[in-house]
Design a protein around this nucleic acid. Structure first.
Lengths: 221, 221, 221, 221
DNA sequence: AATGAATGAGAGTTCATTCAT
DNA sequence: TATGAATGAACTCTCATTCAT
């Protein structure tokens, strides 16, 4: 009667839930939201689905995030914060220009490979006018270190006569990211059209090698 | 939509409508559908919106296309048919390998630049599992001549010692298309993040030059 | 097989419904709305209740009136239009001033007696800030003939030395209407407080006599 | 309510709150409740709004009043208790009948003028069936001294030959209260309809004079 | 006395679709 | 070929209320 009075909880019913754990509930909602929004976009996503995937009561979403839009904004900001954190952990200063640039290209490829949510969210956000990214201080204020990294590495490579002159860092970034992004983003239609399974591990590995080689070739003097 | 809906007279109100013109009505619906699906995807698109943009009665959509899914499939097939037609009109056989390849890269860039609907439809289709592209005989059967064109041009260039060996046509195509596709697809978020208007005419022109130069550099022996 | 093909309809299920009769459906919705809004106000009213009382599908309300607010506005305008029509049918020109004024006071009493919806709608509208009345052109533009009638009758009575000078028509109207309005509007609490059933027919009749006598006494020179 | 609800710190934010002051919290809740119920009625009122206006945690309302209905009942009883107290402070015995009656009419007008909450609560209570007034012992048991005061004053006036015979005190009360009540209760719609601002101080003062004069004229022998 | 977290029921509204002509 | 009327299912969101501390 005294000890173990903890009432029976409905835990373990849903996979990601965190009952009685505020921070956990919030995190579970965000994780489920990212996945759902990535696939269906803001309009197409279902709050019901997010709630049940997160293992929480639907209304808790409104309690924490106000409305669907607020949840979407939070999911978007979380995703951007994550990639920025990853980008910041890149340490290329010690490496030779060529190796540094190869790392950077590889990182870009690998990140997209491992974060399909990021791609999905960005695609829908762009299709819908990118209003949320534009309006989010949190996203705009934590800017990417990549452009700066690229610029520095390009400069070092030019000095070392291994890279050619006249490459704009932003354009270079867009090209490199685009080669990877398009591969993952459009993998399904491309696989259908070409009759080749681009999701297979060896296809991915081969394309990774191609991207690195191709981009590096584009930098040669 | 507000008060006292005494049936709204819609004639001559909508720009794309074609009263009493069967083929015109059908075409107007398809055009409106493409635009709507491109922005919102299959789930997010609204049949009501498509009808009013096309200037036709909503029920006419069901009369012609059965249901929303049928309309989506038709829109998708139309869009693919269009790009295939354009691709087929490319005539590179007479050109030198370098010029031919530059034409091809430029064509890919320009087509995406001029057909944002195509990008939007593909993005949503991929996000939703690419089921419709996979299941459409019409799309799969009219396969792209680009891979073959690339392969032939690469071979000619290798023979002429202007291109290097070992470039896979499909991978090359994905890289080249990706550089352009990502630029247009993600133009809005990229503009926000980089604080640079990538929609401006000079930015587009500059990036086009970059893409051609960069891809060609990647082919040098 | 040929004749009597009319499919079985669910008619006669709900009392006020008018299946397949657009004007009837619209009217049934409005009637149900008036009753519901009169009792519960805009916020408290339930669209579900209105639909089922009208015997129509809930969504038909949105089809015809856009939203709850549009329905409320229409109900309010209908109710005002009705009382204006009744007021206009008053014909006092032929009567002697005293008889004319007694008719007018009696009309005001009787109308409120027979239209509890009108009272309920007005009470809620005032409680909520009277925004809809203020914003409705239809209501403001069809102004009441009562003030003019009162003014003319007062003038005739003064000339005939049966009414005193210095009575403002608007203030007189408000007083007379108020005596009746308050009786019907607050009948329930007044009955409770005074332990007297003010809804009983004889109580109503007695109060009617009182109002006429009291108001007329107030006009004596 | 918008994004990222990290628990809003509400202390010192709301004007009426009384942190750590039990009686103050209770009073703040009641005051907020009266205002909210007066405008929106029992059904339309929002517990959330009352809590935030009172500057207290929503749950505290349940701690003190059980549920929304209990809070409503308390608000209603408080309001009735207040007017009864005011009524009891009237001291007309020393005054001449005419002056006494004028005081009484003026009191009724002034009280309604100064207590719009009272009007709002009564209106909604009547619209909803007056169940709470009927069921509240507290309200029914502390009956109004006004009817007795009116009866005594009328009797004194008849004796002094300044009032006529045959005026029923309850009917007289309803008429007098009605003239004032309707003016304040329906001020907004009346202002709209007549295009005259009945909330202006001079309009109120003029109408007060009218009511007193009109009612007194109705009592003349 | 006071609070943050959580929930079930139900509200208004949207939407694809069908009916009937 | 074309349209207005009508509907059921589902969706976002609100709200009173309870839990647990």
């Amino acid at each position: 009667m005294t000890a173990n009075k903890t009432p029976v909880r409905r835990s373990a019913a849903a996979p990601n839930q965190a009952d009685g754990d505020p921070a956990g509930s919030r995190a579970a909602i965000l994780a489920a939201a990212r996945a759902e929004f990535a696939v269906h976009g803001l309009t197409g996503a279902r709050v019901n689905t997010i709630a049940s995937r997160a293992g929480v009561n639907k209304q808790l979403i409104y309690y924490y995030f106000g409305n669907k839009d607020g949840l979407y904004r939070s999911a978007l900001e979380t995703v951007y914060a994550e990639i920025r954190t990853q980008e910041r952990s890149l340490n290329l200063g010690q490496m030779q220009p060529v190796a540094a640039m190869e790392s950077l290209i590889g990182f870009s490829f690998d990140y997209l490979s491992q974060h399909p949510d990021f791609i999905g969210l960005l695609n829908h956000e762009n299709a819908a006018g990118a209003r949320h990214v534009r309006d989010s201080d949190a996203i705009r204020d934590t800017n990417s270190p990549l452009i700066e990294l690229i610029a520095q590495t390009l400069a070092r490579g030019i000095k070392a006569r291994v890279f050619r002159l006249g490459v704009d860092p932003v354009e270079f970034y867009i090209s490199v990211a685009g080669m990877s992004y398009f591969f993952f983003s459009n993998r399904l239609t491309l696989s259908s059209i070409f009759g080749r399974d681009l999701g297979a591990a060896d296809a991915v590995a081969a394309y990774r090698r191609h991207v690195v080689a191709f981009a590096m070739a584009g930098l040669r003097p």
